[in-house]
Each structure stands twice: as C-alpha cells, then as structure tokens.
Design a binder for these strands. Structure first.
Lengths: 418, 418
DNA sequence: ATAATTTAATTTGACGTCCAAAATAATGTT
DNA sequence: AACATTATTTTGGACGTCAAATTAAATTAT
C-alpha cells in the first residue's frame, strides 16, 4: 500500500497522466485528452492551462483541420508537449565506444554524436573521468549549461549497480566497479542514472508498442551477448541493485562452457555470437573467449553456411537454441510470463535456432506453465538501446516534473519573453 | 501509470491505509493511527467515525491504561478492526487431506477442521464437488449463511491457474485441470480464489514480519516438495496465470533425474524429501518416484545417519544443496533479489545442505550479482500455509472493502440493533 | 476541593481538487 | 442571418484534507 493521499497527490497524478497521454499518443485536442485520461473537460481545461503556464505544454499553432468536410462545430486545438520544457541526454556505452544523444522534452533528437573508445583495457578512473569530459564537450558543442539538461540516462552492457552508479562488471571492460554516475554528475552538475542495455531495449520495445504491455513479459536480446529485460506489471524490472535480468550469465550447465565472465556454463557461452562461432569451429569451450566483438560479417557467413547445410554450423545453432530454450524454460517456471519477445541481431538466424529452442522449452517445463506464453519476434533496428534509454529517461522526467519548480533554467532569469 | 485521481480515490486510499495500520500493528489509539499513516488528527477523527459507522472498526471498551504512572492528560481510546465486520474461510489442500479455518475480520480463527482425503486417485469433478460439499458442511457446522462469508481463499500444492480457478497440475493429484473455484462458488455463493501454497507461505513469512519486505525477496520452501514464493516490490508475485514461482519444477539438469511431474531434471527431483531419499538409497533416478509423501520419521532418520557420517546420506544432502544452490544462482541472475529466505521442514537439515548450496551459488553466478543478497532461515511452524492464506485473504478484503456497500449481511435486515 | 496542566479527540473554517451544468466560442448548414 | 454542432471555458457545488481553535478527560499543584 502506498502512503496517504491528499489533493496534492490528485494534482500530481492527474497532471502526470495528461503528460503521459501526450507522450504516448502525440499531439491531440483537449477533448481527446479528456477521453483518454477519463478526466472531465472542465478539469482538462484547468490542467492544460496550468501546464501551459508551467511551459510543460503548448497549444499548437496550426490551421484548423479541414480534412473531413462533414465535420462541423468549433474546430479542435491540439496541444502537445513543449519541446523546450526540458532537455535530456541519453548515453550508450558499448565495447567499442560511446554514443550520445541530446533530446528535447517532446522526444526529438536534437543532436547526436559517436565516439570510438577502446574501453576494454581502460583503468576505471580513467574511463569515468574520460566519459565525463566527453559529456562536457558535448555540452559545449550544443551550447548547454548545467541547468539546461534535466537528466542524463546511461545504458551499458554488463552488470550495473544503479545505487552506486557503477558498472559492476561488463564484458566491455577488464576492470570492475567502474564509477560512471559520480564523475558525470560532478563534471556537469546534472543528475545521472545508469542501467543495463537489455533493460533499455525492453523499454524501447515497450515504447514502440505504446506501453501496451500489461502483465509480465521477457524481452530477450540475442547478439554479441545475450541479455534480457523483464517487464513486470507493465514496468521494466531492475532488481534490487539494478542488475536484473542477467539472462546471459544465468547458468545453463554446471561446469559447462567457458564464458567471458570467467565462469563456466553461462547461457551466453553457448548462445552469443562468440559462443556459436566457437562451437561451429569446434574450438574448445574450456578456454577464455576473445574479448573483442565478433565481426558481423563473420556471423552472416556462418548463418549462410548453416543454411547451406554445414553440419558444424547447424549443430552450433541448435546448441544455442537449446541453451536459450532451457534458459527460457527456467525463466517461465519461475515467472509465469505471458509474453516472450526475441530481439537483436541474433534473431536473423532464428530459423536455425528456433526448432531446438522450442524443443528445449517443451523438455524443460511442464505443459501447464508453458502453454500460456506467447513467443514473438520484435523488429530489429539498431537504435533500440538509445531509443529505449530516451523513453525511460523522459518517463522518469515526467514523474518528477511536479515535485520541484520549473524544470529548466529559462535562458536568463531577468529576461522576459518577447 | 495508474488512472485518474479524484476525491474518491483519496477517500479509499486513506481508509485503506488506516485499516492496514490496524491489521499490521493491532489495536491502537487514534493519535498513533495518525502518526503511522501521516494523516492529521482531524482526518483520523473523520475516517474513524465513518469506519465505525460502517462497522469495519470499533472503539475498544476497556479501562484506561494506567501502567505508566507518569502519564498525564486525557487517556487514549484504542480502536481496532471489528471482528464481526466480515468472516473469511481459508482452505489448504494437500496430498493427504483438506484443512479449513473460519476467521473473523480481526484475524482470529473462530473454528477449524481437518478432513483426510486420499486425493491422488480422485477424478477431477469428484474432487471439486466433494470439496464444495465439505465447505457447505463447514458452513452448516458454524451456522453460516452465504452472505456471512466475504471470501474463501484456497492454497494448494502444485501449479494453480488463478484465472480459471483450477489446479492445473499437482503432485497431490493424478488428474489435471481440476476445477476448484467454480464448484465452491456455486455451492456457497461466496467468491473464491486459489493460489499456490508456496506463495501463501511467502505471505505468511511476510505477515510475520509485518510486511517489512520492501524490495525483492525469494522464500524457498523445502520439504516433501520444493517451492518458492517471490516477493517483488513488497507484494507476492503470482505471475500471469497464478503459476509463479515453480522453483521445484525449474529444470536443474537437462535429461536429469526423474520427477513427480513426469519430466526429467527438475530441481525437486534432487532436493525434495523423495529426491534426497532416493539418492541416499542409491536407487535409480530414472524411474518415477512414489506418489505418496515420505514419512517424516524416515527423513529424520536419514538426517541422523548423515550426521553420523553415512557417506551415501551425506552425499545425497550435498547433491540436494547443489541443486538448490544452482537454482538460486539462476534465480539471482534473473531477479537480483536482496533477500533469500529458506523455510519449511527441509531446513532442519540445513547443516547438511548449506555448504554445497553456498558453493553452488558461488560457482553459478558472478560475484557482482550474488554479493548483495542475504540468505536467511525462517522459523518453521507447521501452520505457515494456513496463516499465509488468512493474511492474503484478509488483505484482499481490505482492498475491496470500499468498492461495495456493507461487507457482510447483517443478521437480519429488519432487525435493529438493541 | 479547585485550578492549572497535559494529552486526546473533535469542531470549525479554509483550501484545493474534481465535476456537472450552464455559458461561451467558433465553426458549418440552412 | 438564424440554427446546429462541436470545443472549450466559466460557474457553483461536492468532497476530501488540514491548521487552528475548542472541548474532553485525565493528573498534578495549590
């Protein structure tokens, strides 16, 4: 049960659902806001005026819609999120570099930048302060001051600790417990949070579907690694320290194949790009895998030779499918989800993986549990991580918007709007 | 995001937290209700009067507390849940019988009854209607009419389907998809719900701890079977169809030991009473296990011979610990919980199990994930399932109390209180 | 005994939210 | 130009909480 309720709670909650409606469905007239939120026209008027006063929303300055000639009556005036209400920065850290995006309150990307860094050998402090400098430069290039950015959201491969703001362990780094949030907050003065990239993919998949996910769903990422984002009760589940759901490093077979995490038997050691490749090439799975990512062209070639009938390649994909299948069977037994969504570049080879995957699920969990769950494939697009990070960060912003005063320092306190 | 908020939401939520405070902390004066809930004394007065009018609450008729002689001022008047506000029935179905408890709104057990039934060979329809008759008799013995009972909560071993109100699969039954809710609702006219017994144990463990569980916790049951109740975000997680968290039938080793669910490699096949016994006696684990429960005395003897140094027994317990450990490692990777609570009669042999269990967790999941989680043991008491079912059912009642009129048919509509 | 003190609980008046209904605005139709 | 239609705003009332003042019921001091 939550805490006590009062008119302040009512105010915040209703303003929040109005913003949420605009974020999910885009610009719309006040009447429709009323329909979607269930609030009366009178309340919508009040709330809209306040949000417009607060610069969080604005009336769109557009000619009345005359597309439907049968339409009568006073024309609607659409309202929308004010793009200039706030700006956020989304950052993606991966093994080969860093990607930054400056996004306005309406979700439009204003500016983005890619920087290549060989992260693997870096010292923890060097990386943190280095990234902070990159962010500061990004501020400079976009003429941003500290107050101009409301929040910075970061996604990274590996195990994150959202409380400490660190990367606890990641295949992109030899080092552990790398502080990320603190140096950036110190350098920029902007609050910052970090999350696992698979969780951000789940956010992206949900956002693409307008958050229609109601119950429990598991979004599986297949590619250079194997990850999972769990949607529980319509929200992405982060776990107690932000480390959920490490599907890739969930054990598959005790004493099994050697994994990048220097542990034996992880699911990823069978089902990630390097695991599949290693198995197809009949290399020993008891040796540490390479620290660099597999060239996508190599994986493409492997798929094709499997489809051409290469027995080793076919077997490797079947092995991967069986590993993922047993992992999903275990997850299903534990969580009884209603949806499983497969995503990531690895789904390109789904035809090679799926038979073994489905067989393993059947073998691994009682019919009563697995018969409910629907398995789908999400469209692959490269930017899922950044998109998801943006969605999550903006949603975070929406919910904190009313706790404090104005969101963004208006250009100059003394300046009046002309 | 939840729906729109209005004064009705405020009303319901605040009345709910007042009831919740009384349920968790017992009778207390109005001032303290204010302190706990954060509501002002003025509001507490209003709310208390309404709840008293609604017969949900009452002032306790007791002499002022004079235990503290230094105490001055107007004495407090304690209020409490009105025991007669409503009654519920909690039912536990297990392999050897059925247990019923009639409980009042204050959580006091008014009457209870045990009935032995050989469930295993029963036909699904026979069991459902038979149970319904037992419940009807229980009504009769306690002079209950349909309107006198607000809800019936049922806990059972095995996989439940809370939507259909059935036992999808259970070791207590040869049959599958046994309808339980429908026949009872039909026979009694009282709403009824069904849940897994391990989830109810989790409810019981939480209730014993006054629902201090905030984040994610996993309560493991060890005994005739192996079960788990997951507490996510302070609430017991039931999954999309009420079948979570089937820890016992989460696969441990593909193609492994034969399980009661006629599947190979389930965790339970290694770590339940029958699994441990089978392994200690060096019987083949490729044959179906017995359908009846293991005599507790046999398990006690096995523990003692293990403690006396019997190599087979010791190895069996170590094997069980390794299975549970790997299961927990997988669960930790997936859910990043902050607490694991071991409960059930199986914990009596924890000294024999724990070393292998902890070693398996270390072997099975990266340090960054497991270092956070605390492993505890819950006190064992036999009634955990019934206690938990009562707690869950009353809590359910609390939250539905304001959606409809009076909760319970007052003895006779025409009768006035004297 | 009576007044002062202390703590609990209630009453009173104000404030903030939402909403229904009435009024107003802005267009199309006749 | 009057009427119809749809969107939005205005008005007045309802319902919840809260702060402050008041009342209630005890103990302590005089």
């Amino acid at each position: 049960m939550r805490g006590k309720a009062d008119s302040d709670l009512v105010r915040r909650q209703n303003r929040h659902i109005v913003l949420e409606a605009l974020r999910l469905h885009g610009p719309m007239p006040r009447v429709e806001l009323g329909r979607i939120t269930g609030l009366s026209p009178a309340s919508i008027t009040t709330i809209a005026n306040q949000l417009i006063d607060d610069k969080a929303m604005l009336e769109m300055d557009e000619a009345p819609d005359r597309s439907d000639p049968t339409r009568r009556g006073r024309p609607t005036v659409r309202v929308n999120l004010n793009p200039d209400a706030a700006r956020i920065i989304a950052i993606k850290i991966s093994i080969d570099g860093v990607e930054l995006a400056l996004v306005n309150f309406a979700g439009e990307i204003i500016s983005r930048k890619n920087i290549s860094i060989a992260t693997y050998e870096m010292q923890p402090e060097i990386f943190g302060t280095g990234l902070a400098k990159i962010v500061r430069e990004f501020f400079g290039e976009n003429k941003l001051k500290s107050g101009d950015v409301a929040h910075i959201g970061i996604a990274t491969q590996g195990v994150t600790n959202s409380q400490k703001g660190t990367i606890a362990w990641s295949p992109a780094f030899k080092a552990r417990d790398i502080p990320v949030v603190a140096p950036i907050e110190k350098e920029t003065g902007v609050t910052c949070s970090i999350a696992n990239d698979a969780n951000m993919i789940a956010e992206g998949v949900m956002a693409a579907d307008r958050y229609s996910y109601t119950g429990t769903a598991a979004v599986v990422f297949m590619g250079y690694g194997v990850g999972m984002g769990l949607v529980i009760d319509g929200k992405v589940y982060h776990g107690s320290t932000g480390a959920a759901a490490e599907f890739g490093h969930m054990n598959h077979i005790p004493n099994g194949a050697f994994c990048r995490c220097s542990r034996a038997g992880c699911l990823e050691a069978y089902a990630s790009d390097y695991g599949i490749l290693r198995s197809a090439e009949n290399r020993s799975d008891q040796l540490p895998p390479p620290s660099s990512a597999v060239d996508p062209a190599v994986m493409l070639a492997l798929e094709n030779s499997a489809r051409a009938g290469d027995a080793n390649a076919t077997a490797a994909y079947a092995k991967a499918g069986r590993a993922i299948g047993f992992g999903l069977a275990r997850m299903i037994a534990l969580l009884n989800p209603d949806r499983i969504v497969l995503a990531g570049p690895g789904t390109r080879a789904l035809d090679l993986i799926e038979p073994a995957l489905r067989a393993a699920i059947e073998e691994g969990v009682v019919e009563a549990l697995r018969s409910q769950v629907k398995i789908e494939t999400a469209p692959i697009y490269t930017d899922m991580i950044i998109t998801g990070t943006i969605a999550a960060t903006l949603r975070h912003l929406d919910s904190t918007i009313f706790s404090s005063g104005p969101m963004i320092s208006q250009t100059t306190p003394t300046e009046n709007s002309s």
